[in-house]
Design a protein around this nucleic acid. Structure first.
Lengths: 227, 227
DNA sequence: CCAAGATTAAAACATTCGTTTGAAACCATC
DNA sequence: GATGGTTTCAAACGAATGTTTTAATCTTGG
């Protein structure tokens, strides 16, 4: 036993939560997988709820710190000027995709996280809301500054949609198989694919109902479109 | 008691599954909500698993039939010519959004469905895969015909991302509140928002790694972009 | 080396779960 | 209005859950 019991339990719980969900994963499954005693969970964490929070907190805090660090770096390089939307997307979603590709780090965790935004369980939702509060505030401000012409409500919806696409990108490999044989082994390709899609969706023309109220300056030519 | 026990159980289960998830919803919660006896579930459906399948099947079959009907209508109007991507998106995602807005029909159900594509439970995934098999085959064929220049694997990923955005659009109102105060009461606005985002993502420039292999004809001018 | 604290172990705890049982109540048909 | 099939009901079933308890074991500082 090279690692201590506490981390073995966290690792086992993380894996099993991804495979079976939070509720369907029992403490006995976790302690068996971790080669620990059943009572160890309540000794080290206090309860199953507290264990779940610990599993999330262990990696989520670092992820959001990376996000904020990436955003801050862009902002300092820009020196007060608004960032390009692509940079903000990169800082938020790109960091997540990279973490999802890190086999030693949060690969399994990101699968879990991606499915948890819409988690029905009450305490998980409130817990995640607290963990995300700061990073969301920072990125909302950056986006609003970068896209002053887009109504804020409109943007929040698009951000929400982008979260959905991210969630499926990292957690939905099972659901993907429903679509047919597909290769999900290349994280670099996934990164490129998701970024293209997100930018495309973010910068799509506004719905007619709101677009007509907004005047737009000319824009520089862009790359060829997919379809 | 105007409706019969069987449908009261289905309705109660549907609501509670959305609110608490499949596992966390107990048969006793369901029968209490439905004002039915505990044994009624096993009498009418046989088991909890069978009840879950019945809840899904009751509305999912009709939804996918509507999708196929909408696609067929477009195809017949086109008379053998490839459809516009927008039409195919409308037939698949638009129908879903409309059903999600139908307060008397599948509003609560669509919330449940949106969260279930990434369901960890094994039998739900396999069950959904069967239910979706036909509609997926039809829409894949239509998309491939409409977008002959887009590599199929690339498109399947985009379709997957679009499913994620749809999922969040209809089921993630709780998660949305995390982003701040927002109005999710207007289904027409949601429809327009999601369609813009999906089309924008679908037609985004391909990632550089694949785009360089493809020559594209000129395209007609488009509406002003959001950002 | 040994006492004190931290950790692990085995067993049992009270609840709760999905399911089953067997009788009561209902309901249409003759 | 009796009959036979359908549905509801109260109660109990065994199994499994998270948690607690108590003792054994390991670890560590003096």
């Amino acid at each position: 036993m090279e690692t201590d019991t506490r981390t073995r339990i966290l690792d086992a719980a993380e894996q099993l939560f991804v495979r079976h969900g939070l509720d369907a994963t029992t403490l006995r499954m976790i302690t068996a997988e971790a080669q620990a005693n059943l009572a160890g969970v309540n000794y080290h964490f206090g309860s199953k709820e507290a264990l779940i929070e610990a599993v999330f907190r262990r990696r989520l805090t670092g992820l959001n710190e990376q996000r904020i660090a990436a955003l801050t770096a862009f902002e300092e390089a820009a020196g007060g000027a608004p960032l390009k939307p692509r940079q903000i997307v990169e800082a938020f979603f790109g960091v997540a995709i990279r973490m999802a590709a890190d086999r030693n780090g949060g690969q399994t965790f990101m699968r879990l996280l991606g499915r948890s935004y819409t988690e029905p369980t009450e305490f998980v939702r409130t817990f995640l809301a607290e963990e995300y509060a700061e990073v969301i505030a920072r990125f909302k401000a950056a986006f609003f500054k970068a896209l002053p012409d887009v109504p804020q409500e409109e943007f929040l919806w698009r951000f929400h949609f982008m979260m959905g696409a991210l969630s499926y990108a990292i957690s939905g490999t099972e659901a993907l198989r429903m679509l047919g044989p597909i290769d999900d082994a290349d994280p670099e390709a996934l990164y490129a694919r998701l970024m293209s899609f997100l930018i495309g969706g973010l910068r799509a023309p506004l719905p007619d109902s709101v677009a007509k109220h907004i005047a737009k300056p000319a824009r520089r030519p862009r790359a060829k479109r997919a379809a």
